[in-house]
Design a protein around this nucleic acid. Structure first.
Lengths: 347, 347
DNA sequence: TTGTACGCGTTATCAA
DNA sequence: TTGATAACGCGTACAA
C-alpha cells in the first residue's frame, strides 16, 4: 500500500513546532531561529519530507508558476523552424525571470481526452502561430480569464501581441536590390495558406498566412510585377524546388531572388549552384530571419535579422505585467537589414 | 478590483443544488438528470463560471496532468537536435493520451524561483540524456516518489529506460562498409564529454557520453584501428569540419567514413564535395538516425533509422502504466539499417 | 520568533 | 439521482 506521504503538519509535529513555523522554514518568508530551522529540517529528513506539495501550494497561492505554450502544429514541425526555436529560447528566459516554467500544449486535442488547455493549472498562456484553429484556443483561454499573449498571430484587440515589421523590412531588402540595379526580380514566399502545395502564386491568390502576406506586400512595394513562387514550408529543400522553378529557363531567369526566409534563400542558392550560376555575380539572393543556416558557409546571406529570441522574451515580460494586474501593450519589433555576400550589382 | 471568480459553490447555490451535484455535472463521473444538469449549466453561464479550477482539482485528485521533461542542456539546444524534436513529438502523443502536457525543465537548477524538479506539480518525469548531472535529478525525483522514465541514459535498476541498440546498429553499418571492401575507414563521432572541443579522439580518451561510447564500440568491433574524430555537437557544420580534418590529406584519406549522426554525415559529404571527391564513388559515408536532412538531396544517406518518435511514445506509455500503479519495463528499440546512395564499393 | 485558526476550490465517499 | 461531509496540504493574517 502507498504510505501516505508526510505533510508539513507531520514534520511540524515531529519537530515540536507549529505547522506555520515549519512552513516558514521552507518558504523563507520570515526569519526563523537557527535552532528551530535545524529541528524542522531534521524532522523533515527523518520523515522523508521533500518540501511542500506544489499542488497545495499553488491552490493556496493562486499561482502555479506554469505558463502554457500552445502550438498549432506538431511540435516536430514547429521546431523544424529555427526561428521558432530561438523564440522558444527567449520565451524560456522570459518566463523564467517571472519564476515560471513552460508547459508545451498542442492545439489539436486528441480525441477522447479533454483539451489540456482548459484543464491545466496555467497562470498564463502564449499562443504561437496564426491560423484559425488558434481562434478556439484563444476563446478557451479567455473564458478562463487567464492572461494571454499572441506571438505572430492575429488576435483581437485587447490581447497583447508580439509582432514584426515584416512589410517594412522586406521592402528594405527589395530597395537594396533595386539600388544594385536589379529589375528582373523573383520572389520566393512562405506558404499562402495552411495545406498549400508549392507553386506559382497567382496575382489574386488568397493569402491567409499573415507573415507571407505582409512580406509579400513589402516586396511588391518595390517590385509590383515580380513573379512569386510560394513554397510549401520553410526549408532548404523547398527553396531548392522554388529555385529550380524560377531559374531553370534562361529566358525568364531573374537576376535576383527575394526569399521570405533564410532557409528558402539557402535552397535558392543551391539551385543556382546546380545550374552553374554564381552567387552573387550572376544571381543575388536575399533571405529573411537572420539565423545561422547550418551548412551554408561560405555564403553569408544578405538578410533581415529579426530579434527572434527577443520576441519570446518580450512575451514573457508582457505576461509578467498582466499577472501583476497591469495591462500589457502589444510590441512591434523591427528587423535589422544585414548585407552579406549573396547580393551584388546586376551584372 | 478583481471580482472574485465564481466557484462551484456559487454555481451550486445559484442553481439550488449541492456543490457535489454541480461538481458531477462538470466531471461527468455520475449520471445527473437532464433538468438538474441544465439548471447547473444555466447558473454557471449566468455567473460566468467556466469550469473547475485546475489548481483545486489537482490538489483534490492528487494529479496535475503535468509531466516534466528534463534536459541536461540548454533548452534551446534540445530542439536543435532533430532526433530530440521527434522524440518530443512522440512524447507529446504519449502523454496526451493521458491528458497531460509537458513541462520543460532544465537540469541545472538556476537561482531563481522557476519551477524545478522538486517544486513543480509533476505527476511524473522524463529524463533525457546521459550525463552525470542526471544522477542528481534522478535522486530528486525519486525522493518525491514520482514515477520516472529515462530516455537514453543510464539509470539504475528499477527505473524504466528507453534505449537503443546503438552498438549493434553501428556495427551493422560498419559491416556493410567492410563488405563493400573498405578497409581505410574513419569515424566521426558525437562529443566525448560535455564541453568537448572538436578534435581527434585518442585511443584511450575517456568518453562519458553513452551514445558516443556505444556507437564507437560498435564501429570498433569491425574496424578496431579506425581513426576517430569527435565533433562538438551534431550538426552539418561540425561534420564539415570533421570531414575537412579527415579528408584533406590524400595520404591518410579514408575511403569511407562512419558518422554517428546524419547531420555529421551530411557535413562530411559537403567536405568531400569541397575537395572534389565524389560520393559514393570515391568516398562512402554512413550516418545514424534516419532523419530527413534538409538540403541534402539528391543524396540519400545510408544510415540507421532509429524510431525516434516511438521512443517518446513508449516513454509516455511507460508513464501511463506507472501512474496506473503498474510497473513499467525498460524497452530497447532497434534501428533499421537503410542503404542509400552514399555508400558503394571501394574504388 | 512562534502559534492559532481558517480558507483556498474541489471532489470522493457514502448515505438518503 | 442527489446531498452532506470531510478531507486534499498548504500559507498567512493575526495574535501572543
Amino acid at each position: 500500500m502507498t504510505v501516505r506521504r508526510p505533510t508539513i503538519n507531520d514534520v511540524a509535529r515531529h519537530a515540536g513546532v507549529s505547522p506555520s513555523t515549519a512552513s516558514v522554514v521552507f518558504s523563507g518568508k520570515t526569519a526563523v531561529s537557527d535552532t528551530t530551522r535545524q529541528r524542522v529540517l531534521d524532522a523533515a529528513g527523518s520523515l522523508g519530507y521533500t518540501g511542500p506539495d506544489p499542488r497545495a501550494a499553488s491552490l493556496r497561492r493562486g499561482r502555479s508558476g506554469i505558463v502554457g505554450v500552445v502550438f498549432e502544429e506538431h511540435l516536430g514541425a514547429a521546431f523544424l523552424d529555427p526561428v521558432k526555436t530561438l523564440m522558444m529560447d527567449g520565451l524560456t528566459d522570459g518566463v523564467a525571470s517571472l519564476g515560471a516554467g513552460l508547459l508545451l500544449l498542442r492545439d489539436q486535442a486528441p480525441l477522447g481526452t479533454e483539451p489540456t488547455l482548459t484543464t491545466a493549472p496555467l497562470d498564463a498562456a502564449v499562443l504561437v502561430g496564426c491560423s484559425g484553429m488558434l481562434r478556439e484556443s484563444l476563446d478557451a483561454v479567455q473564458a478562463r480569464g487567464i492572461p494571454v499573449v499572441v506571438i505572430e498571430g492575429d488576435a483581437g484587440d485587447g490581447i497583447p501581441q508580439i509582432q514584426l515589421d515584416n512589410r517594412e523590412a522586406q521592402r528594405q531588402a527589395a530597395s537594396h536590390l533595386r539600388t544594385l540595379g536589379h529589375t528582373q526580380v523573383a520572389l520566393v514566399t512562405l506558404p499562402a495558406r495552411a495545406g498549400w502545395v508549392r507553386g506559382r502564386l497567382a496575382a489574386d491568390e488568397r493569402i491567409t498566412i499573415d507573415v507571407t502576406r505582409e512580406r509579400l506586400a513589402g516586396a511588391r512595394e518595390v517590385f509590383p510585377e515580380a513573379p512569386a513562387y510560394a513554397a510549401q514550408g520553410s526549408s532548404i529543400d523547398e527553396g531548392l524546388a522554388a529555385g529550380r522553378a524560377l531559374l531553370t529557363d534562361p529566358a525568364t531567369r531573374p537576376t535576383a531572388v527575394l526569399a521570405q526566409s533564410d532557409l528558402l534563400a539557402a535552397g535558392v542558392i543551391r539551385a543556382a549552384e546546380e545550374l552553374g550560376l554564381r552567387v552573387p555575380q550572376q544571381l543575388s539572393v536575399t533571405g529573411f530571419d537572420g539565423i545561422v543556416v547550418d551548412g551554408l558557409a561560405p555564403y553569408e546571406l544578405t538578410t533581415l535579422v529579426q530579434p527572434a529570441a527577443e520576441k519570446g522574451r518580450a512575451a514573457g515580460q508582457a505576461i509578467a505585467a498582466m499577472l501583476a494586474g497591469q495591462t500589457a501593450a502589444s510590441i512591434r519589433f523591427t528587423c535589422v537589414f544585414r548585407v552579406g555576400n549573396t547580393t551584388g550589382p546586376r551584372s
